[in-house]
Design a protein around this nucleic acid. Structure first.
Lengths: 103, 103
DNA sequence: TTAAATGTATAGGTTATCCTATATATTCAG
DNA sequence: CTGAATATATAGGATAACCTATACATTTAA
C-alpha cells in the first residue's frame, strides 16, 4: 500500500506542510488530512505538531487560536522559503515525474 | 543556491539512487555526478557508499567490480521496489510539480 | 617502481523525521 | 456541570540521511 517498505523515503514533511500552507490557511487536522490524501496515511499527532512548532520557531508560519483549533498561515519569510525549496525540489526530482506523466 | 537552508528536505537518497539505476548501470562516481546535476551538490562518499551498501544488503541492487570501479545494476526486486516507490512519490508530491509545470 | 589520481569504504557523530503513549485544552451534547 | 469528542502538545525513542575525516584499493603517469 504505502510505497516505503523497500525504500524508506522519509523526509519532506516540513516542506509539504509549508507548501500546503502556501495555498491557504489551515489548522493541524486539515493539514493532516491533506497529507493523508496524498501519502495515503495521516501523520500522527506526535509527528505533525512538532513539525508545526519547528516551522513556527523558524518564523515560516504562525498560528492563531480560534477556540479549539489553531489556524496556521504562512509568513512572508515562509513564502520566500517555499519558493526556493520548490525550485530545488523540482530541479532535483523533476525527471521522475516527467516520466510518469508520459505514460 | 541549495534550497535547503530554510527547509531541511533531507531524504530520498536511496530512492533517487534506485531510480537512477533503473535507467541503466552505473558506478558510484557516476551516480554521484547524476545526483549533482539534479541537486546541485554531490553527495559525499561517506553518504553515498553506505547508501549503496544498504540497497545492496536489501537485494535491490548488486555491484560487480571492474578493476577500479564497481558497476551497480538494479535487481528484479529493485525494479519492483522502484515501481511501487515511484507511484507513492508521484501520488504524494505530484501537485507540487504540476503547479511548476504550468508556470 | 613509485607518486598521484581516482574510486570505494568505514568509523563516528548530528539531526529531521518518524513512531507510541500520554497529557492537556476546548467544545458540545445531555 | 459532566462526559465524550476533537484538537493540540509533549516526552521519549528509533532510524535514515546527512556530515567530516580517514583509510584502503586500483590504475596511471612519471
Amino acid at each position: 500500500m504505502g510505497g516505503r517498505e523497500s525504500c524508506d523515503m522519509r523526509g519532506m514533511l516540513s516542506f509539504q506542510i509549508l507548501w500546503l500552507l502556501s495555498k491557504g490557511k489551515m489548522h493541524g487536522e486539515m493539514i493532516a488530512e491533506e497529507i493523508e490524501k496524498r501519502r495515503g496515511e495521516k501523520p500522527k499527532p506526535g509527528t505533525l505538531y512538532p513539525a508545526l512548532k519547528e516551522l513556527s520557531n523558524k518564523g515560516l508560519i504562525n498560528g492563531s487560536r480560534r477556540g479549539k483549533i489553531i489556524v496556521y498561515s504562512i509568513t512572508s519569510d515562509g513564502r520566500a522559503a517555499v519558493k526556493v525549496a520548490t525550485n530545488y525540489f523540482c530541479r532535483s526530482f523533476g525527471d521522475i515525474f516527467e516520466e510518469n506523466e508520459r505514460k
